[in-house]
Amino acid sequence: MTILIEDRRVRASASPARYFYFHMATACAAVAFLGFAPTYFLPLAAGKFSAPPSVHVHGIVFFAWSLYFVFQAWLAASGQIGRHRSVGLIGVSLATAMTIFGFLTGVTMMKRSAEVGQADGGIAFSIVPWSGILFFAVVFAIGVAMVRRPEVHKRLMLLAGISILDAAVARWFLTFLAPPGPPGPPPVAVTIPPALVAYLLLVVAIVHDWRTRGRPHAVYVVGGIVLVAVKLLNLPISATHAWHAFAGGILAMAQ
Rank of each mutant, 00 (worst) to 15 (best):
T2Q: 11
I3G: 10
R11F: 03
S15I: 12
R18D: 15
F20A: 13
F20Q: 06
F20M: 06
F22W: 14
M24H: 15
A25W: 08
C28S: 14
C28D: 07
C28A: 07
C28G: 09
C28V: 08
L34C: 09
L34I: 15
T39P: 15
F41A: 04
G47M: 08
P53D: 12
S54N: 13
V57R: 09
F62S: 07
F63S: 11
A64M: 13
S66Q: 09
L67A: 08
F69V: 06
F69N: 12
F71M: 15
G82P: 02
R85L: 13
S86H: 09
S93C: 11
A97H: 04
M98S: 04
T99G: 10
F103I: 13
T105G: 14
M110L: 09
K111V: 15
S113P: 15
S126M: 03
P129T: 13
F136Q: 13
V138K: 00
A141M: 14
A141K: 02
I142A: 12
G143P: 00
R148F: 13
R148T: 11
P150M: 03
H153N: 07
L158P: 09
A160C: 06
A160Y: 08
V169D: 03
F176V: 07
G181N: 07
P185R: 04
P186L: 04
V188Y: 00
L196I: 02
Y199M: 13
L202M: 07
V203R: 02
V204P: 05
V204G: 06
H217W: 02
Y220F: 07
V222D: 06
V226R: 01
V226E: 01
V228M: 08
A229W: 03
K231T: 06
K231F: 08
S238G: 03
S238M: 00
S238R: 00
S238P: 01
A245F: 14
A252R: 12
M253H: 14
M253A: 13
Q255P: 08
